[in-house]
Write a protein that binds this DNA or RNA. Structure first.
Length: 862
RNA sequence: GGGCGAGUGGCGGAAUGGCAGACGCGCCAGCCUUAGGAGCUGGUGCCCCGUGAGGGGCGUGUCGGUUCGAGUCCGACCUCGCCUACCA
């Protein structure tokens, strides 16, 4: 090991007398020091009122405080931090807040099991996660932190709820829940097994109808289908579109036929997307829960129908995955009359018709619907073709439902519409029915209104009061927040303890002053996450949920990062909420997140989702202790494309750590030589000093040019690879006469700047040492301006041209950069290799690839 | 069943229609070391010819197509992953 007494290794002032060797990179010695320094200086606490710079609102999904940060949190958060640092170096005023999604079921479950209060559990976890988050070295604006279980936050959930109530966007309706006699309402994951037992007490779970609160998301269904003006990944847009599920069709009015037990004449509305097949309806199916089922059922069918309804109530929830896709149903002993031809068709109930979609009733056209076809086959019902391709044989037997819907189909067996093109028949049938008041065009959505009621303790209390005289009375704004009582004894049953908290329940009616009771339902936690990014802008404001000026300036969010698992729920509710806020006059725009990026998911080493129960959770703390935060950050970025994720595997992390060691070495010890390398300290063969300096400079600026694009596209893996290449090149010149010269020094400087957003600690340390060596005052590398590419450094005097013959690489040749196509062809055709291969053949033409890097000689046999 | 996405060395992965396998891991050889599970240098897709310098062929899930040229574009199929679940 050679000695290193050279300038550029300014370690004297900060460390004890130096070893003979250059000081080695030791992450654990520098990372905590810089994290502390950054925090002390408040470098990354954003001045939200600074209008002198371009704003950049960078949001990352706030974590649920489950207790431990795992490697998946690092996978989303540390590249996000790199974006923040990169934008800051471009002069942007970056806001990167963080908070905690602190209400929700896991805290209650933990509390019931562990016998402590959900708040205690939650706050303890938040404490731990704050500490872990700081070890990332991420530049979160901690002064803007939001914790949703704090009354200063959930007060505004209540306020928004009241505004939605005012605007007619919140309403109350009966809805079914899973109910345990001991533990009350259960969430889906609390119902276990095929026989549906309570996760806690094992009791048989029942269905129960409760009055619950809804938000009218369907009012925005059409607007939510438009993604104009926002840059979101295609798969997310598709998922949301499918989730909303807009179907255009018609509502058609059938009537019930008179029979022995029933006078008939009642309306039975069906929804169909295929009114053109109306003449093919050979029976009708109602959902088992349809309100007319009881009234229409014939006395001799009653027993069987009631048994089927009871069975369906279970069936609809039980493992729908089971292979049992057989269509089942029973006739109810009544008929319906087809409005278009007066035909009587039998009515069935079947669980393949859903009460909650459309009208809960369908006209069954077995010839042209797969489900109806299967049902008709099972029960021996008639199948009548009414649509076919123009050139098909109308008498050919149908072996399966014909559902295709193309331009050249015509109607058959359809009375006056027979022979019409199907598409025309569709509209004619609907408008004829409409004229007779028996149908109309109609649109149905898969999307349901948002059920926000939860019969749970650990959430935001819904701010309404039930008064015996005045009914439902909103809590006046000035009485907010309705505090979640802390005194509740949580060691009881799972049932909502608010139901038994008299101090909470008893309240005077704000309207009549008489005794009344509070609502005990709390809000879905998706309510909390539907507006939290607005609150980051004024977390301490006690007078309003958001601060107008800041909201106007800072929203919509410029970039949102988080997992694709929130594709429909959170991301759709957030869009709904923003639109509703706009219509109430609170914000100006209707889209919350201008640009969205979904990073992939890190799975356990076994390829399964990480979870404590599987025991495959990767703890980042241990890796940080061993390699340092910079290595872990860089390794996660280097693994592969950010949107891909994949099974965790730490093979290769040593290579990333080695890379940082090499960066350290080129930055602190340019003149050292490697004893293991005979070439060390010698310029590459055929290269003089000038050529070497130009090569270094060209490499540095080429890297900068390429890395810029990678940063913009969040392509971290190739960004790191290119910095590795540059470092390898600098290493090659270490110890030569050009090491330490201005071109070398500039390359090192660029390397550190380019690496700074990704590996903030080591670059800060090396940067400070450079400044110290140069006798300049300290300034953080993270406040430096991002460097610009010097195009003149990229100009080459010669370039290599790949020579193909018939598409196969046969030769390569160095040519002057300014060579013309014709000159190039002459050079290439004169090459020995080319002449040997061409032989007697003559070439038909020569193709020049754009950029002049490749020519292809197309030859024919001569 | 439907929707979306992906198939490239031993592994993670690169590649505006233009040198397939960048970068890294692993492995092999060498160097340096009292030592090394440290560090450094070089090599490393498969097959064949040649003592060698070198040369040739085959290769991106399968089959076909477009093109001077295809991992990339088009068609059909196979496999895997994720999401969704009878939406009339």
């Amino acid at each position: 090991m050679t000695t290193t007494g050279e300038p550029g290794t300014a370690t004297q002032a900060t460390t004890a007398p130096r070893d003979r060797r250059a000081e080695r990179y030791d992450a654990s010695a520098i990372e905590p020091r810089w994290q502390q320094r950054w925090a002390e200086l408040g470098l990354y606490e954003t001045d939200l009122d600074d209008t002198s710079r371009r704003k950049f609102y960078l949001l990352t999904m706030y974590p649920y405080p489950s207790g431990d940060l795992h490697i998946g949190h690092w996978y989303i958060k540390t590249p996000t931090d790199a974006i923040a640092r990169y934008r800051r170096m471009h002069g942007d005023n970056v806001f990167l807040p963080i908070g905690f999604d602190a209400f929700g079921l896991p805290a209650e479950n933990a509390a019931i099991k562990g016998g402590f209060h959900p708040r205690e559990w939650t706050m303890r976890n938040i404490e731990n996660m704050r500490r872990q988050l700081r070890t990332m070295g991420a530049t979160f604006a901690w002064n803007a932190e939001v914790v949703t279980c704090d009354p200063s936050y959930y007060k505004w959930n209540q306020w928004f709820f009241l505004r939605f109530l005012d605007a007619g966007l919140a309403y109350r309706q009966r809805s079914t829940v899973d109910w345990c006699p001991n533990d009350g309402t259960l969430a889906r994951e609390q119902v276990e097994g095929v026989d549906r037992r309570c996760w806690r007490c094992g009791a048989r779970v029942e269905k129960r109808d409760l009055d619950q609160w809804f938000l009218r998301t369907t009012a925005y269904a059409d607007e939510l289908l438009s993604f104009e003006g926002i840059d979101w990944p295609e798969p997310i847009r598709v998922q949301q579109t499918n989730w909303i599920g807009r179907s255009s069709g018609a509502e058609i009015v059938f009537t019930t036929a008179a029979s022995d037990h029933h006078p008939g004449g009642e309306e039975l509305r069906v929804f169909t997307t295929r009114p053109d097949t109306l003449f093919g309806a050979t029976f009708m199916v109602l959902a088992p829960e349809h309100p007319l089922v009881a009234a229409l059922t014939a006395p001799d069918r009653r027993a069987e129908v009631e048994a089927y309804v009871a069975q369906a109530a279970e069936r609809t929830e039980i493992d729908r995955l089971s292979a049992d896709r057989e269509k089942t149903g029973v006739p109810i002993g009544a008929d319906a009359i087809n409005p278009v031809n007066g035909e009587r068709i039998p009515i069935f109930i079947a669980d393949y018709v859903l009460a909650t979609y459309g009208t809960g009733a369908i006209m069954a056209v077995p010839a042209h619907d797969e489900r109806d076809f299967a049902f008709a086959r099972t029960y021996g019902l008639p199948i009548r073709r009414v649509v076919m391709p123009a050139d098909a044989d109308p008498d050919a037997a149908l072996t399966e439902a014909f559902v295709a819907h193309s331009a050249d189909e015509v109607l058959i067996n359809s009375g006056p519409y027979t022979g019409r093109p199907a598409a025309d028949g569709w509209h004619e049938i609907v408008s004829d029915l409409e004229r007779r008041g028996l149908g109309r065009q109609s649109v149905t959505y898969r999307l349901r209104d948002w059920l926000v009621s939860r019969q749970r303790y650990w959430g935001t209390p819904i701010p309404v009061i039930h008064c015996p005289t005045d009914g439902i009375v909103p809590v006046p704004d000035e009485d907010l927040p309705v505090l979640l009582p802390d005194t509740v004894d949580y060691r009881g049953k799972g049932e909502n303890p608010l139901n038994h908290d008299e101090a909470f329940l008893r309240v005077d009616c704000p309207r009549c002053g008489g005794p009344a009771r509070r609502e005990t339902d709390t809000m879905d936690t998706f309510m909390d996450s539907s507006w939290y990014w607005f609150r980051y802008l004024s977390p301490d404001d006690e007078t309003a949920p958001l601060e107008q000026d800041r909201v106007t300036r800072w929203t919509p969010v410029d970039q949102y990062t988080g997992g694709a698992e929130h594709a429909v729920m959170h991301l759709l509710y957030a869009r709904f909420f923003t639109k509703a806020m706009r219509d109430i006059g609170l914000v100006r725009h209707g889209e919350p997140f201008r640009r969205l990026f979904n990073q992939g998911q890190i799975l356990g080493a076994d390829g399964e989702r990480m979870s404590k129960s599987r025991g495959n959770v990767q703890d980042p703390d241990e890796l940080v202790r061993r390699y340092g935060a910079d290595t872990v950050r860089l390794f996660l970025m280097f693994m592969g494309p950010w949107d891909q994720g994949g099974p965790w595997n730490d093979r290769g992390i040593g290579g990333v750590n080695r890379f940082l060691h090499r960066v350290w070495t080129v930055a602190t010890d340019p003149h050292g030589r490697e004893p293991g390398d005979r070439e060390s300290g010698v310029l590459p063969e055929g290269q003089d000093e000038d050529a070497a300096r130009a090569a270094i400079r060209a490499a540095a600026h080429r890297t900068l040019r390429d890395v810029n694009e990678d940063y913009e596209g969040f392509r971290w893996n190739t960004m790191v690879a290119k910095l590795m290449e540059l470092t390898n090149l600098l290493f090659r010149y270490r110890g030569t006469d050009v090491a330490g010269l201005p071109d070398w020094d500039e390359a090192v400087r660029l390397l550190l700047l380019m690496l700074a957003p990704a590996a903030p600690h080591i670059t800060e340390e090396l940067w400070s040492r450079r400044l110290e060596a140069a006798g300049e005052p300290w300034a953080s590398i993270h406040t430096q301006r991002w460097p610009t590419v010097d195009e003149t450094a990229l100009v080459e005097e010669t370039r290599e041209v790949i020579v193909q013959v018939n598409g196969k690489v046969r030769d390569r040749v160095m040519v002057p950069s300014g060579v013309s196509d014709i000159e190039l062809e002459q050079i290439v055709l004169a090459r020995d290799r080319v002449r040997a291969i061409l032989g007697e053949q003559e070439h038909a033409r020569i193709v020049h690839a754009p950029g002049g890097r490749l020519v292809n000689i197309v030859a024919r046999a001569g």
